[in-house]
Nucleic acid binder design. Structure first.
Lengths: 211, 211
DNA sequence: TAGATTGTTAATCGATTAACAATC
DNA sequence: TAGATTGTTAATCGATTAACAATC
């Protein structure tokens, strides 16, 4: 992370994709790759790849390209995958439970350490090795356990309240699965997963193709 | 849908958001709204909203603004929410089951009519009123049941194969939850939900804010 | 050395914002 | 009629692509 001007959101959104393709190359024991080859794989122009990477540093070598292992390490660093993060899931419905069970996030350094719900029928139930607790307990839990990320999986009518409580106890990163736009203090980042919007986009595009 | 040049993806991705905010307004019995007011709610400029809407038609009235009920109906039409769609879910793991249970998509006209998995322990199990079937049966099922949308929730190593089978039996719209980029014929549309990429974006942004 | 490929500047393209005449 | 707000054109801004000197 040598350079660092103002990275545009367009670039940031492509970083995880670079990380994924480089992880694949690494797994396949590829040593080096040029922006041209990588571009053909991902479906970007070589030019764009070089522009993107040069926002963060000079990782390549003229006449050679990029060393896969090194570039992968650099992007891991840029994304912050070298660190470990604790998350809690608020809302143990379908999506909350699915996320708690989904193990892949641990590879990205993010571990779910707590799950909370308001439904007495769910409280006490275990998902993997984590017990679902009463939703009222999460502020206390966050204070005692250095939680980095709050994952909101409650219905939209409760989402803003949960969000406010999460930020009140110091959480600075929120992954929001509720279909609303949350309001947060300036120093808090929110990443939305709006499944309904994604599905509507698909439906629109499908209708266009088929006239 | 009067006009219709080449709608940019940027505009298309905003349509579901317009739909959501207009649904809210409708629910709150708001009769009319100006691009200025709507912009303040959503966080867009008034100019952008007028530009976006004018890709599809002249829905407003000078001096008045937009009639909420009418604009909502128009956007429903543009998105294709007036029609009904049948979907099948391939892969009944955490995410597949969560999507099958999640009822909200029915409001958007999309109904899950079948779920399939390769795991014998899951086959026969019921989610809501739908029985999980053997994954080998889905091509036959698609042919007999006018399925519009294939939802891929299998592990990434199987995702391309499932995708090929879905397109082979005529599916033109794929909602992909596997963390890979699928290859499809030109007349098939794919919408990806890449949760890992979303989470990595959040982690990156959180690290930037906190230096 | 010759070939390959980078980092970076310049050119192009597209998307957003501003401005304003038209008009309800 | 006067005020408000649209639809649309023009101006600006930002992102992508192309080009090429630098250099491994």
């Amino acid at each position: 992370m040598e350079k660092k001007k103002n990275i545009s959101m367009a670039v940031i959104k492509r970083l995880p994709k670079y990380y994924r393709y480089l992880s694949d190359l690494l797994k396949n024991d590829v040593d080096r790759i040029s922006s041209k080859e990588l571009g053909e794989k991902i479906g970007f122009t070589a030019s764009q790849i070089r522009q993107d990477l040069n926002c963060f540093g000079d990782f390549g070598q003229q006449g050679y390209g990029y060393n896969v292992r090194e570039l992968h390490a650099q992007i891991s660093n840029i994304l912050g995958i070298h660190k470990k993060y604790k998350s809690i899931i608020v809302g143990a419905g379908n999506i909350g439970q699915a996320l708690a069970n989904y193990s892949n996030f641990r590879d990205l350094g993010v571990e779910a350490v707590g799950i909370f719900d308001a439904n007495p029928k769910l409280i006490g139930m275990k998902i993997r090795d984590i017990e679902i607790r009463d939703i009222d307990e999460f502020p206390e839990y966050v204070k005692n356990n250095c939680v980095d990320i709050g994952i909101i999986c409650v219905p939209s009518r409760n989402a803003q309240t949960v969000c406010d409580e999460l930020t009140a106890c110091g959480i600075k990163a929120i992954w929001n699965f509720a279909p609303i736009d949350l309001t947060t203090p300036d120093d808090v980042v929110v990443e939305n997963v709006h499944l309904s919007e994604s599905l509507l986009t698909l439906v629109y595009l499908a209708n266009q193709k088929h006239q």
